[in-house]
Simulated assay, not measured.
Amino acid sequence: MNNGFRATTAAAVVALSATLVLGATAGAYAATGEQAGQSASAGTRSASAAARPTLTAAPSASSVKAWQEFRITGKAKDVAAGTKLTLQQKQRSKWVSLPATTVVNKSGGYALRVKLGLKGKNELRIAGGQAVSPVVTVTVR
């Protein structure tokens, strides 16, 4: 009977200790998890909002003849000078990089000479520096 009492007491002490340890750990985790989650998400929001790179794009003409040269110009915000930018064209619902590139200048601008031969409406955008410009449409006739 003495061994049975000791075993029951030991089991109760282990269960109570485990409950206290797990409860305290869970409480500490919940408190730090909430605080860390709030500060991390607030820090992420302000950091991503401040450093989110953006590109603009504007064609010099909305309609051109096949193989007629036109320009696409724009500004790059939060993109380092010298960053390579590539012209992309939507082909069969996929964006394809064309062999037309330029770099961001010191003032954050760029310019690109373009010639297109694919007749019809061409959807174009500029990509680079982890940013993509809004889509611009140029009709080739």
Rank of each mutant, 00 (worst) to 15 (best):
135 V>F: 02
14 V>T: 13
10 A>D: 05
11 A>Y: 12
74 G>E: 06
52 R>C: 03
118 L>Q: 14
140 V>P: 09
112 L>N: 05
18 A>G: 15
59 P>E: 04
114 V>G: 02
106 K>M: 15
67 W>C: 00
100 A>P: 00
17 S>C: 12
73 T>D: 13
38 Q>N: 15
58 A>L: 13
68 Q>V: 00
13 V>R: 08
111 A>V: 14
106 K>N: 15
114 V>P: 00
90 K>P: 03
104 V>G: 03
83 T>N: 13
132 V>G: 03
14 V>N: 09
25 T>K: 08
64 V>R: 04
137 T>C: 07
74 G>K: 04
20 L>H: 10
126 I>A: 06
73 T>A: 15
101 T>M: 01
39 S>A: 04
40 A>V: 14
88 Q>C: 07
26 A>D: 10
141 R>I: 00
122 N>A: 03
112 L>Y: 05
91 Q>N: 11
80 A>P: 05
96 V>G: 01
139 T>M: 14
132 V>K: 03
8 T>Y: 09
15 A>K: 09
72 I>Q: 03
122 N>T: 02
113 R>W: 06
41 S>I: 01
54 T>D: 00
19 T>H: 10
33 G>C: 07
39 S>N: 14
132 V>T: 07
53 P>A: 10
104 V>K: 05
12 A>Q: 11
72 I>G: 02
91 Q>C: 07
78 D>I: 06
50 A>S: 13
87 L>D: 09
35 Q>P: 01
79 V>A: 04
121 K>F: 08
119 K>F: 01
84 K>I: 15
69 E>H: 00
58 A>F: 10
105 N>W: 03
63 S>M: 00
60 S>P: 07
122 N>E: 03
39 S>Q: 10
45 R>P: 00
6 R>C: 04
24 A>G: 13
121 K>Q: 13
69 E>I: 00
85 L>T: 10
14 V>A: 12
83 T>I: 14
116 L>R: 09
69 E>D: 04
63 S>R: 06
87 L>F: 08
111 A>L: 13
62 S>D: 01
141 R>V: 00
13 V>L: 13
47 A>R: 01
41 S>W: 02
22 L>F: 12
56 T>G: 01
53 P>F: 06
3 N>R: 08
50 A>F: 08
10 A>W: 02
31 A>K: 14
84 K>S: 12
19 T>W: 10
23 G>I: 00
97 S>K: 11
52 R>S: 12
106 K>C: 09
43 G>F: 00
125 R>D: 08
49 A>V: 04
137 T>W: 07
78 D>E: 14
89 Q>H: 09
13 V>A: 10
87 L>V: 10
46 S>L: 07
32 T>W: 15
90 K>C: 09
56 T>A: 02
21 V>T: 13
29 Y>T: 13
95 W>Q: 11
23 G>F: 01
18 A>I: 06
79 V>S: 04
32 T>P: 02
92 R>T: 14
69 E>T: 04
6 R>A: 06
11 A>H: 11
50 A>P: 06
35 Q>H: 04
81 A>W: 02
83 T>V: 11
114 V>Y: 03
22 L>Q: 08
107 S>N: 15
